[in-house]
Design a protein around this nucleic acid. Sequence first.
DNA 1: TTGACAAATGACTAATCAGTCATTATTATA
DNA 2: TATAATAATGACTGATTAGTCATTTGTCAA
Lengths: 276, 276
Amino acid sequence: MSKKQLIMETALDLFAKQGFEATSVQQITDRCGISKGAFYLSFKSKDELILALIDYFMMQVTSDIDYIVRVTKDEELLYQFYFSIYQTFHNHSQFAKVILKEPSLTLNKELILKLNYYDKLIGNTILMMIERLYGEAVKETKYDLLYSIKGFMSAYSQLFIYYNIPIDLNMLVESLVEKTNLLAKHTTVPFVSKEMNDIFQFKQPMNEEMKEQILEMIENKLEEMEESIEKESLVLLKGQLLEPTLSRAVVRGLLENIRNQPHCKWIAYLLRQYFE
Amino acid sequence: MSKKQLIMETALDLFAKQGFEATSVQQITDRCGISKGAFYLSFKSKDELILALIDYFMMQVTSDIDYIVRVTKDEELLYQFYFSIYQTFHNHSQFAKVILKEPSLTLNKELILKLNYYDKLIGNTILMMIERLYGEAVKETKYDLLYSIKGFMSAYSQLFIYYNIPIDLNMLVESLVEKTNLLAKHTTVPFVSKEMNDIFQFKQPMNEEMKEQILEMIENKLEEMEESIEKESLVLLKGQLLEPTLSRAVVRGLLENIRNQPHCKWIAYLLRQYFE
DNA sequence: TTGACAAATGACTAATCAGTCATTATTATA
DNA sequence: TATAATAATGACTGATTAGTCATTTGTCAA
């Protein structure tokens, strides 16, 4: 494990237990068995550490959910969606604690923006799922459905983030699927309008700047990769980004190729957004 | 306004903006136009201040909701319930920010216990409402309904706590009433069981110790009250607490008498719990 | 073995902040 | 008005902590 990763995992544990502000850099480095100075070789500041933590986990979560929504067939989608959400909460419960408990951290505007940004991305994915599953039927109420789903996620997550109760995940998910379907099929009174939702999630359309960012990420990634199918795929995708020549099917296949390369999930997610 | 109150309101603003840890006592006292020493005449420590803030607001909220649930007739109950919740969020949005953003505050176990305590009380009130409205029909699913309602509360509260969007409160409430009724009437797959819920909300039955506490509060209150119907009512209620002689109807009336006396809401709430 | 480079150290600095207390100001009382 | 009692002050203390940097340790290639 790299030093950076060691610091991140150690810090995560401590933040989950004590909170961000109450955890000193000294405490982190003591626990890691390294010196304080070594910490500053990996991170420019303590703030940079928490931002890195958020990126590290939220990228995973966001791209996982997006992938599920895109590849799962309709009949199983809602089930798989909730299943993946709660599995993630379970696998990364330490991180979930930090996020759910500490959206304050008012010191840092950047942090709030970051959390907002990922919340927006996940919201868009959920909306996409709602539209696919229920179509025109929920035209008026889809934003309410989005908020209801978010409500279910937060209310039920508390149940097993703080306590280690053995959970029948299948039962939980079945229960939420039923509730979601009920609301989708019978709700008639809308409250959240498109405009209201947009105030929070004003769309950031993919633009040239974004393209540059993706390109840069790909190039960094390519440098550290060894020759392989994955690398070849990424090279082709880079070409497609610069000048679109490949068919949609080929692109889809190439994305599938790189998806399971560690750290490539996020690039795959961004490219998927860009190409559509 | 008393000095204590001035400090509490000033601190609330600052905590809502900057968070608890990031706000220094100096900052609070500067804003109040008093010295740092004066702060410590009103509060033993900074921690005591946040605990006092939580008590001050949560007592109001808890007793308000409980009152609504007890006096509103079934047909309007759900509407009035949500209406009161969101009105409270709106009126005390600064406080809501502190609470919703800062359930961490990991320094202080006492604080977490306190928040848990009020959450439990409110949960019990909501459960009482659910049982009254839907009865046996939701025997299996009432705890899920409780979590769904909590989910709605938190998801929708975000909408207008952080942004000052003009809100059609009536529409919001209608929309949540419909959702709640839908879930209550059609949910068949339960997930949260009584036992699971009890792990969080293990009942603290009213006991002798509680009785002593209420008595002490009443006596403190009586000292600062002037002769009035309210004082007379409170004296009678104190008698009833020591030795029950009055009829239920009389007790109910007396409680109604003191309910609107400032600061008596909480005593009324506790007495209501005790007498039933 | 030597020397050059990089990695790691931890004592130190400067800043912050909760809480104290000797002193001063204000108010109530006689 | 004089005296006592109470309220308020703010400089100070001690503790903590983010971040720095001169020094040491480790690692190679020559």
